[in-house]
């Protein structure tokens, strides 16, 4: 780990101003991902701005019937919130499917969104990785890439985004509220927060340097049932092989791309009256598996069809 300086931010505006003014600054809240990466020197911040104790926690109803979740609310708090459980069960289910109880107690909503990929080659610093060392190559491409992306990958990067929570937020059409150093507040749909790898997999989000996520805003829940299903190698504390979030007619897929994958083709097919099986098949027409991860096609197909069916009480 490289030496770094540390400050505890007093307020959000101070935090973003400090971030803009200090080279190599990073925000830290729960630190459940960042600290691991710092120990391996995959992350090398020169300055940490602790936003974990800012007054950004809390869950409050919005005038339009939606819900605003402060960025430093812990994952466990969100998952157990009565309003979330009653109106956004898919979000609660998704959060509980991620990490472990200890991690969820520590991790925040903002940090969860910005967790980095769990690609094994990203973590092994002796191996090429364009995300970690731009231009060095992608060792996963020809490697043991069973858990690689099937959508939106490039030859520069085939990693997946591994947040469960983000998949549910994508299905719900959530917005991310950010604060810039200028003091300007902005909202971005969750699915637009993330960038596909292209030639620059090291650039992962649409956030500008120093932008701080202050909240996630949920629109009123869509009509229809909600469900989150995740397939994984062990029952807890395991990244997914694939996941699906269903909220009425809105469907998002997880662990299939470097972002939560809103399944627009599936949604359109469902709206046009297709069966869940047909609808997910429409989405998978656009998939590009690599061999070792071919199983994700039938897995996503079966998992999604079952989830859509279960959420909406439809026949397969």
């Amino acid at each position: 780990m490289r030496p770094f300086t540390y400050e505890r931010a007093v307020d959000a505006l101070g935090a973003v101003r400090s971030a803009a003014a200090t080279p190599g600054a990073r925000f830290i809240a729960g630190g459940t991902n960042l600290l691991d990466l710092m120990k391996l020197e995959i992350e090398q911040p020169q300055h940490l701005i602790d936003v974990g104790r800012l007054d950004l926690a809390g869950i409050a109803p919005m005038p339009d019937g939606g819900l605003r979740i402060g960025a430093s609310t812990s994952n466990s708090t969100v998952a157990a919130d009565p309003q979330v459980l009653a109106r956004y069960p898919v979000l609660s289910q998704a959060i509980v499917a991620g990490g472990s109880p200890q991690l969820r107690n520590k991790a925040t909503v903002g940090g969860n969104l910005l967790q980095r990929t769990r690609c094994a080659y990203f973590y092994d610093t002796t191996k090429p990785c364009n995300k970690r060392a731009p231009g060095s190559g992608c060792s996963a491409l020809e490697g043991l890439n069973r858990n690689a992306a099937i959508f939106g990958a490039s030859t520069a990067c085939i990693a997946t985004h591994t947040s469960d929570m983000a998949v549910a937020l994508a299905a719900l059409g959530a917005q991310v509220e950010t604060l810039a150093a200028s003091g300007e507040s902005r909202t971005t749909p969750v699915i637009d927060l993330y960038r596909l790898p292209g030639d620059t997999p090291q650039i992962e989000t649409s956030l500008a340097a120093g932008d701080l996520i202050t909240a996630v805003v949920l629109p009123p829940p869509p009509a229809g049932g909600q469900i989150y299903r995740k397939a994984r190698d062990r029952a807890s504390y395991a990244g997914g092989l694939a996941s699906v979030a269903v909220a009425g007619g809105q469907v998002a897929l997880g662990m299939v791309a470097l972002k939560p994958w809103r399944a627009h083709a599936t949604e359109a097919a469902l709206a046009a009256g297709a069966s869940p099986t047909e609808a997910i098949a429409r989405e998978l027409e656009g998939a590009s598996p690599l061999g070792r991860n071919d199983f994700k096609l039938p897995l996503v197909a079966r998992l999604s069809a079952a989830a859509i069916q279960e959420a909406n009480g439809r026949g397969a």
Binding site: S100, R118, A120, D124, K127, L144, R234, A235, Y237, G239
Partner: peptide, 23 residues
């Protein structure tokens, strides 16, 4: 084994999946 490098995959306890309580 990644035969290109002679190294092993799953180098930490988040990736080497020993059973957890829920299993």
């Amino acid at each position: 084994v990644d035969v290109r490098y002679g190294s092993l995959l799953n180098q930490d306890l988040a990736q080497y999946l020993a059973p957890v309580q829920a299993d």
